[in-house]
Design a protein around this nucleic acid. Structure first.
Lengths: 184, 184
DNA sequence: CCCATTTGAGACAATGATGTCTCAAATGGG
DNA sequence: CCCATTTGAGACATCATTGTCTCAAATGGG
């Protein structure tokens, strides 16, 4: 069996997103490889985190391209985006919390771009009249990350079925919890 | 100046909720005390985490009592709950992620009780017809935690005004992002 | 089928964080 | 105002994790 870099990083993201203090030993074990091999490919925790950020951002951007955020209604685009994030939910959860480490001020460039695209989607929905305007795009973006992380977490612990991922998040984010008055 | 236990724990919760790998040195510094004093009152990271859980859960329960979750409409109770969680948002963010460590299976008893009360509130809203029934109370509970953590995070980084806390969370959680058709 | 390459397991030293101690300075109650 | 108590700063040993190395076993391409 050859070394599957992306698979190892995905496993690492899944573990680190719920246990940020995991050791290299635990990460290697979660990925099903030895600590020696882990260290051969990623130099220490720093190297691992950098690789995680790089792959996570790349996959996120790919996923956003795939969702064609600029096409159709903002509502449709948002649902497509949520659905498309399912395979990268662990990366997103990791990135969203890891990004908090940039205290110094320097924000990751790639992350800023992802953030900007999501924010632009919410802004587009507000301008088209689809979305309410009393919630800032920045907050909606952050809220989306939080909901994705929460959903990934409930699925990871087996409390929710994976196939409900999109419906859970988009249902809540779009419509809220209040029951709609019977339409028509 | 005497040692303010609750203040130290609040500072620790705030730091740990966004940097789970913080050292004892960093925690002490964030709390404005020396590492020696930190260690005198909380034996190591384990002791600190236990104290954090204990105080966090106690404050959460107090906050839920204060919000009178059983009275009035579920909607009103939910808004009261959100508003009441503002001072303990950092604790909740810490507990929600820290609780993921109980992999072995044993879940913290106090946390289970808090969880149960929130879940019951959502269930009450569904049974009264206020809330939609296609989102499970367990998911709504988890989503609430995620939104609270996200809101606390945006406020901590200065991207949102603290006074918007309740409106941000309740606005999104109750109504969702879709613009309501002009009522009546 | 063989050989170049990679992996896993373990040993070991280096590193960094922690637990523990001492002592001078600060604090605050009586 | 004084003394008992607590704190902060630092030194030091201990511990856990990490970085590095070796070598046998596994792998897979040619």
């Amino acid at each position: 069996m050859s070394f599957d870099r992306d698979r190892v990083l995905a496993d690492a993201a899944e573990l680190l997103s719920r246990k940020a203090t995991a050791t290299q030993d635990e990460i290697a074990q979660a990925a099903g490889i030895s600590r020696a091999t882990l260290h051969r490919h990623f130099a220490g925790r720093d190297g691992l985190v950098r690789a995680l950020e790089e792959l996570g951002l790349r996959r996120l951007e790919a996923v956003m391209d795939e969702a064609r955020l600029d096409e159709g209604t903002a509502t449709g685009a948002l649902v497509r985006l949520i659905e498309a994030t399912r395979p990268v939910a662990a990366f997103l959860a990791f990135l969203a919390t890891e990004n908090q480490l940039f205290e110094g001020g320097e924000v990751n460039e790639g992350w800023e771009r992802v953030d900007g695209r999501v924010t632009a989607l919410f802004r587009r929905g507000q301008e088209s009249g689809e979305f309410r305007i009393d919630l800032s795009p920045a907050w909606l973006t952050e809220a989306l990350y939080g909901l994705i992380a929460s959903a990934a977490w409930t699925i990871q612990t087996g409390r929710t079925a994976p196939r409900d991922y999109t419906a859970m998040i988009s249902g809540l984010l779009l419509g809220g919890v209040e029951r709609r008055a019977p339409q028509a």
